[in-house]
Amino acid sequence: MTRYYYDFHVHSCLSPCGDNDNTPNNLAGMASLNGVTLMALTDHNTCRNCPAFFKAARRYGVVPVAGMELTTAEDIHVVCLFETLEEALAFNDEVDTRRIRVKNREDIFGEQLILNEEDEIIGREEDLLINATTITLDEAPGIVQKYRGICYPAHIDRQSNGCIAILGEFPHYAGFKIAELNDRANKEEYIRRYGLEKLKILVSSDAHYLDQLREDNDYFDIDDEPYSSSLVRQRLFEQLRSL
């Protein structure tokens, strides 16, 4: 067993609100400095910086997970994680068909940069990434599952784009097995107030700037013999699916 400290909610410079210093190499490097060995890149409604992140993570000894922070039709943020990069990119293609197209205004929302593994700009996303898609909260788990992914409501302890603020209570009917908190200090209160006793609570940073990445992260114990990063992901997903 190896203890993997995780952060499953991190933005790169492709997210409009993500700082341009949040390059794939800087994220992987900071993860390594902070003792995070399992990091998911979850940009708003896109996985397009995940290929570069996978290569950068390798350099720094970090196990990468390809993900997305999906904005549902209700403006609820949902973290979507995938066992393989390929499945994440296929999911990305489906989400692309469900986005509401509005041109990004870089002066308001910031740039949306696609980088390669050397942190060089290889493209820009022209349409705004952060706005709602036409995918409803109820639909999201089924779509994510088609790509063998797992999804759960993000930062349920936040007013903006948190499912409890928008829906008034936790959407138990939707069958989520996991909920994400932004602040660990809210854990006991949220479990009690919203009946989350049966859910796995994950805490992640939602870092849009490098200095928002944390040093005090939660962990998974994973049997990773014989080691490979894909085995670590496979075992992680086995744990998540068995919840």
Binding site: E74, T136, D138, G168, E169, Y173, A174
Partner: peptide, 10 residues
């Protein structure tokens, strides 16, 4: 304009 399950609950 919300049509989610929780509309009924609220």
């Amino acid at each position: 304009i919300m049509s989610n399950n929780n509309v009924i609950a609220v």
